[in-house]
Every structure is written in C-alpha cells, then in structure tokens.
Design a protein around this nucleic acid. Structure first.
Length: 298
DNA sequence: CACCCATTGCTTTAAGTGGT
DNA sequence: ACCACTTAAAGCAATGGGTG
C-alpha cells in the first residue's frame, strides 16, 4: 500500500526530521510497568475510531512515545509510555485483520520515571481516555513513587493547582463501600470524591457508608435482573450525599412597588440568573437586582 | 443554522485543620 | 509559627445537547 511505503520511506530516508522515530512490530513493545491499567480495559469497540482511522490511512499518524529497554527478561525492546490505544489498535489490525503491513510508529525517548509519568498523564488528560477514578489512583501511586508524598511539589511539577490534585487524591482514597456503590468505578467523577470526602470525615460518615451499602445492594439486584449499566453515576452520587431528588431551581420574582414584575431570578448552583424586563425604570431594575441578591440564600 | 443553557475542567483566592 | 494539605466558593472558557 502506498501509504505504508510512504511511512516507511519517510522514516528510512530521514525525511521525518526526528531520527528517533521508528516503525516496529508492536509485539516488541510492552506497556510501561507503571502505566495505568488502561490497557486491559481496551477493546476493539472502545478503540473502534482509532482502528478505523489507521485502517483507512494504512498507517498510524501520531507516534507513540516509548523508552528503550535494555536486557528485558521477556525480550521486549521498548516500553510504551504514551500510546496504549495506538499499540492496541495496530496490534489488532495485524492480528485480527492480518494487516501485517501496518507497523507501530514509535518515538524513542530517554525519560526518567517521573518524566514518563508526567508525559503519560498529559497524554491521558488530553485524550480524556482515562476516568477520574483511574487518574486519581495513578496520582496516588505517583505521589508515593516519585514525589516522596509531597503533593505540593507534585502539583508544581505537574503544573496543576494543588486543589485539583487534592481532589483527585480524594477520589482515589474513597472507601470501598463508596466504590462499590457505583456500577463501575470509572463512573466516579472528581467532584464526587471532592464532595464526598469531607462527609466521610464528619459525623455523617456512618450514615454515608450505610447509604453506600444500600446503593451497592441496589446495583447488585439491577445486575441480577440483567439490567446493563445499573444506576446512573449522577443518581448514585445523589443518593450517597443523601439528598433527595434534585431541587427544582426556584424562580423568584421581584416586583416593583405597584406589583409589576421587574425581574425573575433563578438560582442554579452558585449562580443567580436574572431575567430582566428592561422596559422598566432603571432605578426599579437596580432595586430589584439588589432584592434578588439579598434573597439569594433561600 | 444560531442561540440558549447546563455542564465540565480547570483556575484563583481564602479560610480552615492538623502536624512539627 | 510555620508548613502541607484540604475545603469552599467563585469565576471563566470550552463543549455539547437541545430548541426555535
């Protein structure tokens, strides 16, 4: 296929500027040992788009980032730091569709573990192919492995806010009861962990754990009934928090002294949304805004 | 299609907790 | 007192699913 010849000759002739680019058999590469468990969760369905595009192009466009291995006991030559999905897709095409002309395009880099971690994290983040929970678990492991349990230093190195890192770490350290309440741990979002964490430290902790067990039991029954998916993550989260069905945004109407509505205010989360009748006198609008702000704690 | 609206993913700031 | 860390609140840009 022309595309393959193109890719090969580009590399061979050095027209591809970066000399560290190679085309190899994916079987010579293994995942980086500290890599997330993502690879085991990859399926031809979850990679369908990528597989399709490589099939169509006849080659892999974006190189995976790998490190060279020396004396690997299992004989692998490279380890993949970023590009698990690409590795999966190329392997799939070669094995299942017998497209032996498709090679794994790699870029060999010399990276320390900590750099490799940041690299693969950046990649995952951009591609959003890792769940918040998994990401939290990775951060927790990295915190210990590369940053001597100093989250401040880690946040600086990663160039994320300490708050954000802290949130991810709290997702990762959620008790098993809470994890089990979700149909799939990958459903747990950062903000879930962020908001549940403080509840677990407070007085309501036992109540929360009870609720978690209850939800977990519900999930089991749903699963037994063969209902795929189970409870929606948002629903689980609401039940865990112990809040009832989502409160309707209460519209609050402010009228002028003669009883005519000047504005209606809707409270949504931390926001107050105003719908103003601009035909009303300026002063009345300003008063109404003030009144709406004052009433916002209801 | 443009517009509306809620959500997401992140930031900044500030106040609080708890350990040395 | 200081430090590391957590929590809360607010803001902002990007995104994406409706809806007229």
């Amino acid at each position: 296929m022309a595309a393959r010849e193109g890719a090969l000759s580009e590399v061979a002739s050095g027209r591809v500027r970066d000399v560290r680019l190679r085309l190899v058999d994916p079987a010579t590469c293994r995942m980086w040992s500290k890599h997330n468990r993502l690879y085991d969760l990859l399926t031809k369905e979850s990679c369908a788009e990528l597989i399709g595009s490589i099939r169509a192009q006849g080659k892999q466009e974006v190189p995976a980032v790998v490190r060279r291995l020396r004396d690997d006991p299992e004989g692998y030559e490279y380890e993949v730091v970023a590009g698990a999905r690409r590795h999966f897709a190329v392997s799939y095409l070669r094995q299942e569709e017998n497209r032996k002309e498709v090679y794994f395009l790699i870029e060999v880099r010399d990276l320390e573990d900590e750099e490799a971690f940041r690299f693969s994290d950046l990649e995952n983040r951009n591609r959003k192919d890792i769940s918040d929970y998994e990401r939290g678990r990775e951060y927790l492991a990295a915190l210990h492995d590369y940053y001597g349990n100093n989250a401040t230093r880690m946040a600086e190195r990663m160039e994320v806010s300490k708050s954000l890192l802290s949130s991810y770490l709290s997702v990762a350290t959620l008790p098993q009861e809470v994890i089990d309440a979700y149909a799939d741990p990958r459903d747990i979002a950062v903000r879930h962990g962020q908001q549940l964490r403080p509840l677990l430290n407070g007085e309501g902790a036992t109540a929360l754990l009870d609720r978690a067990r209850e939800v977990a039991a519900m999930q089991r029954t749903l699963r037994e009934k063969g209902q795929a998916g189970g409870l929606e993550p948002a629903e689980v989260f609401r039940r865990l928090k112990g809040s009832g069905p989502r409160a309707k945004a209460t519209a609050h109407t402010v009228t002028n002294p003669t009883g005519r509505p000047v504005l209606t205010a809707k409270r949504a989360g931390g926001r107050l949304k105003l719908d103003i009748d601009v035909s009303m006198p300026r002063q009345q609008i300003l008063d109404a805004v003030r009144a709406a702000l004052d009433s916002r704690q209801d």
